[in-house]
Simulated assay, not measured.
Amino acid sequence: MDSFTHAFAIAIPLLLAGNAILVPFAVIGAVIPDIDAIFFFVSDDEPSRYIFTHGGITHSIAGAALLSLAAFIALYLLSTISWFGQYFPEKVTLMAGFAILTGAMLHILLDYLAYPGIPLLWPFSTEKFTLGIFPGPSLPILIASLALLCLILTRRAGNGVCQGYMVVFLAIILIYAGLAVYANAETDGKAIPTINPGRFITIEETDGSFVVRPFDILHGSGAEILYRKYTNITPAEVAGIAMLPEVERLYYHSYIVTAERRGESIVLRDPLREEKVFRYPLDHSSLVIPVRDTLSG
Score class of each variant (00 low, 15 high):
Asp2Arg: 06
Asp2Leu: 10
Ser3Thr: 15
Ile10His: 01
Leu16Lys: 11
Val23Cys: 08
Val23Gly: 04
Pro24Gly: 09
Phe25Arg: 01
Ala26Ile: 08
Val31Asp: 06
Pro33Gly: 11
Ile38Val: 15
Phe40Ile: 15
Phe40Arg: 11
Val42Met: 15
Glu46Ala: 14
Ser48Trp: 12
Ser48Arg: 15
Ser48Thr: 09
Arg49Trp: 13
Phe52Gly: 03
Thr53Pro: 01
Gly55Glu: 05
Gly56Ala: 13
Ile57Asn: 06
Ala62Leu: 15
Ala65Phe: 15
Thr80Ile: 05
Ser82Lys: 04
Gln86Tyr: 10
Met95Ala: 14
Ile100Lys: 04
Thr102His: 00
Gly103Thr: 03
Ile108Met: 09
Tyr115Asp: 02
Pro119His: 05
Trp122His: 14
Ser125Thr: 11
Glu127Ser: 14
Phe129Lys: 15
Pro135Ser: 07
Ala147Val: 13
Leu151Trp: 07
Leu151Lys: 06
Leu151Ala: 12
Thr154Arg: 11
Arg155Gln: 15
Val161Glu: 07
Val161Leu: 01
Leu174Lys: 06
Leu174Val: 07
Thr187Pro: 10
Asp188Tyr: 02
Lys190Gln: 14
Thr194Gly: 04
Asn196Pro: 03
Phe200His: 03
Phe200Arg: 01
Phe210Ser: 07
Phe215Arg: 03
Ile217Phe: 10
Gly220Leu: 07
Gly222Phe: 03
Arg228Leu: 08
Lys229Glu: 01
Thr231His: 00
Asn232Lys: 14
Pro235Asp: 04
Ala236Leu: 13
Glu237Gly: 09
Glu246Tyr: 01
Arg249Trp: 08
Leu250Ser: 04
Ala259Val: 10
Ala259Asn: 06
Leu272Ile: 12
Glu275Ser: 13
Glu275Ile: 09
Val277Pro: 02
Phe278Gly: 01
Ile289Lys: 01
Pro290His: 03
